[in-house]
């Protein structure tokens, strides 16, 4: 067996440096990262990257920052497995390997000029933060913007200071709910679906962007349809255990679609008949 280096391998890693970290909750940690070559990541909101810790492994992680205006990017990582737990131990100055960005994100060009209803459940806020930041950076290019947020309990809310800012802004509608309150919680209590009937939208010109845990989708979609939002204007991003990102390894397949190349963002019309999607 012979061996040679291949320059154009799709498994080749880019060097990247952690610039800043912040523990957001018990389980979730924030990382600001810059590519070693000084170039921006050049991603679209909703795309993901593969993060490598050499000797441990690789995981797909959504990019959590807007592509515009800066050379670094953000991710928000929940410690659930081998790689993510090890990632949590890293700090500013540490180097990691990056591949990507991969997949089709939110169709920014289509969304411009329309109203947005952004619905995030739990860690789903991470990929949506990328979209939200982009929209806020280019606020006048979009119509009305609604952000609905839900999580299990107050301690799991991500990006607390940003949420406060969104809450204060007059150019967007923001609401948040928790499944279970604690004594200090003065806000809404209930599933995220309870927030949807209350938003005032013009369904024909509204695009919904939904990211959350698998159980959330069916219930949220039902509410959105009953609001009259057309199926192809409901955008969903799916989580799968991608191993290659190149549409080969088969891990992320949803019937005939590859989440890593055809998604992770799909419109509901395209996947509504795919039972393996949700």
């Amino acid at each position: 067996m012979e061996k040679m280096v291949i320059k154009d391998s799709s498994y080749k890693l880019e060097k990247a440096k952690i610039l800043r970290t912040k523990q957001l909750t018990d389980k979730e940690k924030f990382f600001e990262i810059a590519l070693g070559n000084g170039q921006p990541l050049d991603h679209e909101p909703g795309q993901f990257i593969m993060i490598s810790l050499l000797g441990i492994g690789e995981v797909p992680i959504s990019v959590a920052s807007s592509p515009a205006g800066r050379d670094s990017f953000d991710i928000c990582v929940r410690a659930v497995g081998k790689v993510t737990n090890a990632l949590h131990k890293l700090k500013a100055g540490d180097e990691i390997g990056i591949r990507g960005p991969y997949g089709k994100g939110f169709p920014i060009r289509v969304l411009q000029g329309n109203d947005l209803l952004i619905i995030a459940g739990g860690l789903g806020l991470a990929p949506l933060r990328s979209l939200i930041h982009f929209v806020l950076d280019n606020r006048r290019d979009f119509g009305k913007v609604h952000i609905l947020l839900g999580c299990k309990q107050p301690g799991e809310l991500l990006f607390g200071d940003e949420l406060e800012d969104w809450n204060k802004r007059t150019d967007l509608y923001y609401a948040c709910t928790v499944d279970r309150a604690d004594p200090d919680w003065a806000g809404n209590v209930g599933l995220i679906t309870t927030l949807i009937p209350g938003v005032d939208i013009e369904p024909a010109r509204t695009f919904a962007a939904v990211v959350g845990p698998p159980v959330m989708y069916n219930f949220v979609i039902k509410e959105l349809l009953s609001k009259g939002i057309p199926e192809r204007q409901i955008l969903l991003s799916f989580e799968r255990n991608m191993k290659c990102g190149n549409g080969k390894c088969g891990r992320c397949q949803i019937q005939n679609l590859y989440c890593c190349q055809d998604g992770p963002v799909f419109n509901y019309e395209k996947i509504k008949n795919l039972s393996e999607a949700m």
């Binding site: 012979e2 061996k3 040679m4 291949i6 391998s9 890693l13 060097k15 050499l54 540490d94």
Partner: peptide, 21 residues
């Protein structure tokens, strides 16, 4: 099949390789 060879530890020193015959 090997896709990548690397040195572990601080810093990312990795090379993408192919084995063939």
């Amino acid at each position: 099949e090997t896709l990548l060879e690397y040195t572990a530890g601080k810093g990312v020193k990795a090379e993408a390789v192919v084995e063939y015959e």
